[in-house]
């Protein structure tokens, strides 16, 4: 046990295995904290955190805010729709204005890939990336791999398939990095239009037949089809996507082993997952949400420890 090798959490790419294990060990203790009658600890009481969401978010923002409040931090929230960005202010000016109010940490979601790294280079605060375009979403990957370790005992040696819209997904990229650093084997599966051209250069294999992918894997992490990021038509219709890539209970029953089903949310029920699968015992979707708070507490605590 020691400290993180990084000052900011910009992406899983910049973490090493020991960092991830340290976050997991700390998160395990925080999971106990959030199940106490009084779920709050005073560790971050002299820290102020700004949540800057330049792009919409429901659960990530709630999860971060809850994690910050459970650690007794002071929290200010900002969403782009109400901001001066609309009046032409630049990102650095907006953030520096907020930092002049003595803010110590910034949690940022932005639609441009690299926004968090850019900010880390130009402002004097600890930056946590809560999603930057189609690049990375590190806390999601940490909570996903933590949930796998919790259910299966370990991540190393497990076979994980990421199914769905890989092209527009920051969750997919962060998960690939995290799973590989922890020693899992990774496959991606989806319509070939939604799989990036050179994805195999990351050391993952590609499968377009979802049944074959399910037969291969221990864990299926199913992603949402991100209609809002699609500027062209990548498949004919929702119905057709559901027919080819939607996971149903009979498909799981046909596989001769138990597969762990995950989803980062929000779910399009009846498209990528049938309702029956979402609510089944194989699904750990709600565990992921609970673990999200513990993982974010651990990340905030460990980064705040580094003055």
């Amino acid at each position: 046990m020691s400290e993180l090798s990084v000052k900011h959490l910009l992406g899983i790419k910049y973490l090493n295995e020991a960092d991830i294990q340290l976050i997991f060990e700390t998160a395990t203790q925080f999971k106990e904290v959030i199940n106490r009658p009084i779920k709050k600890v005073p560790s971050l009481r002299d820290i102020t955190i700004a949540n800057l969401f330049f792009e919409n978010s429901t659960r990530t923002k709630l999860s971060f805010e809850l994690a910050q409040k459970r650690l007794s931090a002071d929290v200010i929230n900002f969403s782009a729709s109400m901001s001066s960005l609309k009046k032409g202010e630049t990102l650095i000016d907006t953030v520096n204005n907020i930092l002049s109010m003595k803010v110590d940490m910034v949690v940022m979601r932005h639609s441009s890939a690299g926004a968090a790294s850019f900010l880390a280079q130009h402002v004097d605060a600890t930056i946590i990336n809560a999603g930057d375009g189609a690049h990375e979403h590190p806390t999601q990957a940490l909570l996903d791999t933590f949930s796998i370790a919790e259910r299966l005992g370990d991540v190393a040696g497990k076979k994980v398939v990421i199914i769905g819209d890989i092209l527009h997904s920051r969750v997919a990229l962060s998960n690939i990095f995290a799973l590989q650093k922890l020693g899992a084997e990774v496959k991606v599966c989806g319509p070939s239009t939604l799989i990036p051209k050179h994805i195999t250069s990351l050391g993952v294999s590609v499968e377009t037949d979802v049944k074959k992918a399910l037969a291969w894997c221990d864990v299926a992490n199913v992603l949402r089809v991100q209609f809002e990021r699609m500027s062209a038509s990548y498949f004919p219709s929702n119905r057709e996507y559901a027919a080819f890539y939607g996971i149903t209970k009979p498909m799981l029953d046909a596989v001769d082993k138990e597969i762990v089903i995950m989803h980062p949310g929000p779910i399009n029920r009846g498209v990528e997952l049938s309702s029956e699968v979402v609510d089944s015992n194989e699904s750990i979707i709600l565990d992921q949400v609970e673990n999200g708070v513990a993982i974010r507490m651990a990340v905030l605590y460990l980064l705040a420890s580094k003055k």
């Binding site: 020691s2 400290e3 605590y301 705040a304 420890s305």
Partner: peptide, 14 residues
Amino acid sequence: FFRDDFRRGDKVLN
């Protein structure tokens, strides 16, 4: 998590 020397020393409190 309840210690009063968090961020006051050089060591991370694990």
